[in-house]
């Protein structure tokens, strides 16, 4: 689905077309789910809740989204906020709903052409390939490239603690952020 197709789909969804909502859900549910699955504190039911709440919130606020091309980034932002709120623990779990009720940020920073999704995917792939063979690369490969297992399931498969898997994933994610930030700053310099 190209950016133009996504924009057209969002326009149709804003007009009430349910098939457009379905297309958006099928295109983006995996990205949203991957965010939640990275939180080993969340069980399968909570992960599904994150997916559902993210799309409910996004579809209800869709008309307010300023830049349709930022839809994917907007979704994962909602998903991360909700996942964080849920993973903080049962004692403050009730605050998740409260957090979600906060004003939804509908404006996303513009990105330079060097950081289109296609290019970022290439960057991530290169970073994965560049990792030395070993447990970190295996964890990242299982989680992001195979894209089927949760952090919990990977911990079970590799015989590790959940926190160890989460730590590896977060470390790799930080590497991705560092690389993307460098490119963002470079685009600002040019």
């Amino acid at each position: 689905m190209t950016e133009e197709e996504i924009s057209a789909c969002i326009q149709r969804a804003n007009g009430g077309a349910q098939d457009a909502h379905r297309e958006l859900y099928q295109r983006f549910h995996a990205s949203v789910r991957r965010v939640a699955l990275g939180y080993s504190a969340l069980g399968p039911a909570e992960v599904e809740d994150v997916v559902q709440e993210t799309f409910v919130r996004a579809f209800r606020e869709l008309a307010r989204l300023e830049h349709p091309r930022a839809f994917g980034r907007w979704l994962v932002t909602i998903a991360r906020h909700h996942s964080q709120a849920l993973s903080r623990g049962a004692r403050i779990r009730g605050r998740a709903a409260e957090d979600l009720a906060l004003e939804l940020e509908t404006s996303m920073p513009a990105i330079p052409p060097a950081l289109t999704l296609e290019r970022r995917v290439v960057v991530v792939r290169e970073l994965i390939e560049g990792l030395p063979e070993g447990p970190e690369k295996e964890t990242v490969r299982l989680f992001y490239l195979e894209g089927e297992l949760s952090a919990r399931e990977i911990a079970e498969r590799l015989g590790l603690g959940k926190s160890a898997v989460t730590m590896r994933l977060e470390r790799f994610r930080a590497r991705v952020k560092r690389e993307l930030l460098a490119r963002l700053l470079a685009a600002g310099v040019e």
């Binding site: 859900y25 789910r33 932002t77 998903a79 995917v121 992001y144 991705v176």
Partner: peptide
């Protein structure tokens, strides 16, 4: 800088999404 969402969107796009009929039915 929006790097959190830039990273999450790219990381979530590394694998091919499967059709999720159950999730869609629930959402609908």
């Amino acid at each position: 800088f929006g790097v959190e969402s830039l990273a999450d969107e790219a990381l979530g796009s590394m694998s091919t999404p499967r059709e999720d009929a159950v999730g869609w039915a629930r959402l609908r």
